[in-house]
């Protein structure tokens, strides 16, 4: 369950500034529909699939929901990597259940996306051809067992922070999918934290392994909330549309403030020398996030981008014969039933 609440616009053509959508003049009827839509936004009302909505609202939602869905299914990979090497049957069963949840969350979200008039195949095709983005957190490798715990604690923790406000999204199907997802999410964070607690009670090498994993995941985790508000041009519109409720920086601050005491309980340090309590702000100050690295990973140059996408495309292609066989079987059953009825 992970989105970086980052609504990435389509890449601009190289060398040319990104085309800005300029609204065509509206006809009288459209104007009336737009006015009714604006009134719904003002009243914080919900939009349902068959309701009229501005094209840009629809496009933004398709982009965000599909990016979110892609993040869920790509997010199965970093932890899936450890299922066969989980240290006990208990941890293996937990990890299997968590990874299955991620797959399920992807399916809820694809189904919400389809209510906007895009097809599952179109969304998957955009992922497989690299046109669509997913949360860049999954482009980092899971090097040790402790990484699975830290992903649960920090990455899922950040995702929960991001996702709870989306439960109140103005678009009904997205909000309903998010409610379902958030209900399941808490297990993900708690199992991760508990697994780390266990390791911290172990040997010096195990504690070191946890600290090393925290050191590697901390910065990517707080970058998950997306660019600072000042550099987040789409945010204002998304706020107006009730798609986004809380700004990137505010969510990041809440996450950091919630996580610092948890790190203390766990007995690990967070790798930021500037991280300290600010009495005046009643919040933690923190260091500069490396946004160049963030954009570098978003743009395809992270340690695992190619591997994640290739794994996904392989799974899809190797599953083609199963889908074909299932359809052929269904057609045969149908033909048989009709023959019996005739």
């Amino acid at each position: 369950m992970y989105t970086q609440a980052l609504d990435l616009p389509p890449s601009p053509v190289e060398g040319k500034p990104a085309l800005k959508a300029v609204a065509a003049p509206l006809s009288g009827r459209e104007q009336a529909l737009q006015t009714a839509f604006d009134a719904k936004m003002d009243a914080d009302a919900k939009i349902e699939p068959q309701d009229w909505m501005p094209e840009a609202y629809r496009k933004t939602l398709v982009r965000q929901i599909s990016q979110h869905a892609h993040s869920e299914i790509i997010g199965m990979q970093p932890e899936g990597n450890w299922i066969s090497r989980a240290p006990s049957l208990k941890r293996k069963a937990i990890l299997l259940a968590k990874v299955q949840d991620e797959g399920g969350h992807g399916l809820y979200l694809y189904s919400a996306g389809e209510t906007l008039g895009t097809s599952r195949d179109q969304m998957l095709d955009a992922l497989h051809t690299g046109k669509a983005k997913y949360s860049s957190i999954f482009n980092y490798p899971t090097l040790t067992w402790a990484d699975t715990g830290v992903i649960g604690w920090l990455v899922d923790g950040a995702a929960i922070m991001n996702q709870i406000p989306i439960c109140r999204c103005s678009y009904g199907p997205y909000a309903r999918a998010m409610i379902r997802i958030c209900k399941e999410e808490s297990f993900h964070q708690r199992q991760g934290f508990e697994s780390l607690m266990q390791l911290m009670k172990g040997t010096a090498a195990q504690r070191e392994m946890v600290q090393d994993a925290v050191n590697r995941w901390w910065w990517p985790s707080i970058a998950m909330f997306g660019p600072p508000d000042a550099n987040s041009p789409n945010s204002e519109q998304s706020m107006r549309w009730g798609i986004k409720r809380i700004s990137n920086d505010d969510l990041r601050q809440r996450f950091i403030d919630a996580t610092v005491p948890q790190a203390k309980v766990l007995g690990v340090s967070l790798p930021d020398p500037d991280l300290k309590w600010n009495e005046e702000r009643q919040a933690h100050d923190y260091g500069q996030i490396d946004w160049d690295d963030f954009w570098n990973v978003v743009n395809g140059n992270g340690p695992c981008n190619k591997e994640r996408l290739a794994t996904r495309v392989n799974a899809h292609e190797n599953g083609a014969w199963v889908r074909e066989a299932a359809l052929a079987y269904a057609a045969k059953q149908k033909a048989h039933a009709m023959k019996v009825a005739a």
């Binding site: 299955q100 999918a177 379902r180 889908r323 299932a326 269904a330 059953q333």
Partner: peptide
Amino acid sequence: CGSLHASDAQQALQMARDVYTR
């Protein structure tokens, strides 16, 4: 509670169990 893709109703039922009633 949502939707899903399946080859036929029987498969849809099985998948619904996995997707929506874990």
